[in-house]
Nucleic acid binder design. Structure first.
Length: 298
DNA sequence: ATCCAGGAAGGCG
DNA sequence: CGCCTTCATGGA
């Protein structure tokens, strides 16, 4: 089948910065699920069975330019994907108003003005990434993810660059613990990933099902019933995948480090101190966390 | 070496 | 319920 490049443009909302989004996307040199060049990001995606290679950049300050390589036109689906990926449909003005009155956030909204929470739309990927990232440093987590993707995922190659899809649940549901152990996942994490894959294959777990619960708190309770998914992982997934803007992974080590650094303390904040601090972020705690993460890059 | 890393489960009282 | 231990390995 012949694949051709097609172009589509997306008008950008108020309080959006491509430079900030790109900086987030580019935070790890070991990322295997997209490739960042100077001013663009490339990503291979699956849009309900249709595989598409995306290339996103900016035409000007107000317009994203999206090129996509696929068998057939699908402007609408591509635009929807990108809008969700970069959270373009959210009005950030309330967050900026809140940050204006918050001494911890104010410098961050100044430094990273226009940063949006970059999404992980695929629920299975988001859950696996959370499990992989538990209690290991990020560099190692990226290595583990790469091994998992390159073992169980599909790819395409263009101009010498290989682009990967995250594995489908079906691929991991039938894997064995020893297979995953060989990738340096721990025995427990291997069990968690296989269990999550099986739940998705048999339909007990789906993004649609979680969304149908109607609230972030209800989805959090449901996610925490899954073996291997605790409060941190649940809130991480709510933040990146289900896009609950008040999700709050309070146990997050990166959050702790960022808060310590912003406050100039010689120790990590306690959970009680984080509870108190985050009271000023209520309604937008996921955005507060994401901006704090971004502050660790600079 | 030693401690930490984008935690969670399972056991105990 | 709250606290403690175990898991396991790479990075700094």
């Amino acid at each position: 089948m012949t694949q051709v490049w097609r172009d589509v443009e997306i008008a950008v909302p108020h309080l959006f910065s491509w430079r900030e989004v790109l900086a987030y996307l580019n935070r790890s040199p070991n990322e295997c699920l997209h490739r960042v060049t100077n001013d663009e990001v490339w990503k291979y995606i699956d849009l309900s069975g249709q595989r598409v290679l995306l290339r996103v950049g900016v035409k000007n300050e107000d317009t994203l330019r999206v090129a996509y390589l696929s068998d057939r036109p699908g402007d609408h689906q591509v635009v929807q994907y990108v809008r969700e990926w970069f959270d373009l449909d959210r009005d950030l003005t309330p967050f900026y108003a809140l940050a204006e009155a918050n001494s911890l956030l104010q410098p961050l909204t100044l430094a990273h003005r226009g940063l949006r929470i970059v999404g992980v739309q695929d629920l299975f990927e988001a859950l696996c990434w959370a499990v992989i990232g538990q209690q290991v440093n990020l560099a190692f987590a990226y290595t583990l993810k790469r091994k998992l993707v390159e073992t169980y995922g599909d790819s395409m190659t263009l101009n010498g660059n290989q682009y990967w899809l995250f594995p489908r649940p079906e691929s991991l549901a039938s894997a064995s613990v020893s297979h995953l152990r060989a990738l340096q996942l721990t025995e427990r994490k291997s069990e968690y990933l296989i269990g999550i894959a099986q739940r998705m294959v048999d339909g007990r777990l789906s993004k649609q099902g979680l969304q149908a619960l109607g609230s972030g708190m209800a989805a959090e309770r449901e996610l925490c019933r899954i073996r291997g998914i605790g409060p941190w992982s649940a809130n991480y997934v709510l933040m990146r995948c289900l896009r609950w803007q008040d999700a709050f992974p309070i146990q997050d080590a990166g959050l702790h480090q960022a808060v310590q650094r912003r406050l100039g303390w010689d120790r990590k904040p306690t959970l009680a101190e984080l509870e108190a601090l985050s009271r000023g972020w209520e309604g937008w705690r996921a955005y507060a966390v994401f901006y704090l993460w971004q502050s660790l890059l600079s």
